[in-house]
Design a protein around this nucleic acid. Structure first.
Lengths: 357, 357
DNA sequence: ATGAAAGCGCTAACAG
DNA sequence: CTGTTAGCGCTTTCAT
């Protein structure tokens, strides 16, 4: 095999195939593209020629004509978060069956990055967008905001709602999930409950649920127990945020919360590590509840109680709605535009006795 | 704001901008594209016009001309595997800085899916490809095989080697990692060691390392202790494979291995669940070693000993080499084409005494 | 400094 | 059934 180095093998075009097959480019398009009709003879010749040249159609040129790219963008905070990777996985599996590709973008909860991703994706002329927005409420006041998201392209919002945008959205009932978790702790006798989150919108709703539960049970809402720092500068998969927050919360023995509610998996892990570092015992010294279930939750000692989101449903519903919009641009998704899925409190041992009430 | 419903707002083109600005399309291209030169006046007018129309350049048309798409494909087994999601995360973060997007493809270890993904990606005219191939050795004998991968497009192989292909590759030293883990168990007195993998190439190398270690210590290589079933039909994130394998391995008390070596995170979790189900204790009843480290490993009781891959290095080296190829197509990567990174045995408590020898 | 025009590879009328 | 041809939106010579 003579190595014609440097000589980048030319990409064959439909024209080359046409010449070799002795037909017109239109005919080649017809047999390869599967539209129109061609004689058996022509079909044969074209296939043969295409094979011989190892012809690979130029999707870019096709997109140019057809005005569709068969790709959708997925913007999430961090693909390393099992919650998002599960969604990506499920979404991709249904997309690929329809010939779509998925372009993944990690914002790290940075609004600016989100905007620049949006720009990239729109330039790429994606057919659809699925997004867990990192933009904070405040950043949306901006007058330019309305221009950031193109309402002309099919979009589905997941995980978090984006106010003043009329896209369909699929998310968990963050308020209720947190309300239930908090109530659970209260019923178990906890009065001082720490909660660890961050500045993203989803977490605000969860903190509200927590707050309401406290209030409804005549307990004070003490902001000292709310750790809501920003995620900035936290490396992906970095567990230190949760550790830091926990150590902070448990610093003063007398004010120490008797329970901690961590608002995502990474934070939960951080809490567990910190509690362990401090030589404290769960649930006797401090109870723990996490947001999002994980495989090892039931194997830890004690097993960890969690608020479980129906990730599968979120992903499935979201992608089916998005495809609906893509394939039928006139679909009006006005009614029932927002679907809020309930969460499930999975009670294991990390909050004390295994009550079932 | 009158809602001109249905009337899909027209995408503005460079021509619209040109007209509004009162210049030619060439000039618009020059100021927006940042090449050539334009008068201050023209520049001003163009920018204004572009802003007013919220003009978004058509990347497809650009790609058509420039013959570059600014996107790279990433083919992995399953993005839900923390090992792959970490790689994706790191790779994406360096790519985005250079204006590239990343298209993620999950093969689920299915060779056919890999081939169809490859086709999609090549049609999309990706600028580069990073791949952890799912193709088994046997599938590569196929005469068509050589045509499956286009040597004309920059490619980097990660995690597993693909024989007879002259692409650069970055992977862990699977043989050595497994050899060390197995030796560790042997030195701790284990003689019957079960190993759980699957039919993918990486795992073969690991089993070979295990085998060599056994042999070098005058222990028999007993295929009854090797669980190497196929992954087919296992759902993403499904832990049942590991559970099934473990229960199988531990079925007959008298032949029972005293240690189990699980070849990826998901399998490790399965092993832990199964062992727990069976009411056995780690490490007394059975020792456990896992492949790939994980945050909770040190929090489990006992903490789990693992073979740790330098995921960060794999991702970083791989992407830098890929970019090198993309940006400088004439780079000859002949020497040192293959980089094999060593693994690290992280000894915790799951194999018995915390020896350090 | 700027405009006209060719052309990237393909699809889809349209005409035959 | 098949070929000719006109673009899709942009970049980029080549003139001016």
């Amino acid at each position: 095999m003579p190595r014609k180095s440097e000589q980048k093998s030319k990409e064959y075009t439909i024209k080359d195939v046409a010449e070799l097959a002795g037909v017109s480019t239109a005919t080649v398009g017809r047999v390869l593209g599967g539209y129109g009709s061609a004689s058996h003879e022509a079909t044969q010749a074209v296939r043969e020629a295409a094979n011989k040249l190892h012809y690979i159609p130029n999707g870019i040129a096709q997109s140019m004509k057809k005005k569709t790219t068969k790709s959708v963008g997925l913007i999430v905070a961090n693909i390393c978060n099992p919650y998002f990777s599960s969604i990506a996985r499920i979404v991709e599996s249904v997309l690929v069956k329809k010939g779509y590709n998925i372009i993944i973008c990690n914002t790290d909860e940075d609004g600016d990055r989100e905007i620049s991703y949006l720009k990239m994706l729109y330039e790429k002329r994606i057919d659809g967008l699925m997004i867990a927005s990192a933009l904070k409420e405040s950043e949306r006041k901006d007058s330019q905001f309305n221009m950031t998201y193109k309402e002309s392209i099919p979009t589905i919002i997941i995980d978090r709602e984006i106010s003043n945008l009329k896209f369909p959205t699929v998310a968990s009932d963050n308020f209720r999930g947190a309300y239930e978790a908090t109530s659970h702790l209260i019923k178990l006798g906890h009065k001082r409950i720490g909660i660890i989150g961050s500045t993203i919108s989803t977490f605000f709703r969860r903190v509200e649920g927590y707050r309401q539960a406290m209030l409804d049970h005549s307990l004070p809402f003490d902001t000292n127990l709310v750790f809501n720092k920003s995620y900035k500068n936290v490396k992906p998969g970095d567990v230190s945020e949760g550790i830091y927050a926990t150590k902070n919360l448990l610093k003063y023995r007398e004010y120490r919360p008797t329970a901690i509610f961590a608002l995502n998996n990474l934070l939960t892990t951080g809490v567990l590590i910190a509690v362990n570092d401090l030589g404290l015992k769960i649930p006797d010294d401090v109870a723990v509840i996490g947001w999002d279930d994980f495989d090892l939750a039931s194997l830890l000692n004690p097993p960890i109680t969690v608020v479980k989101q129906s990730t599968y449903n979120i992903a499935t519903i979201a992608i089916s709605r998005l495809l609906q919009q893509i394939e039928n641009p006139n679909t009006i998704l006005n009614e029932e535009k927002k679907v809020i899925l309930s969460t499930e409190l999975v009670i294991r041992g990390s909050c004390g006795s295994n009550v079932t009430y």
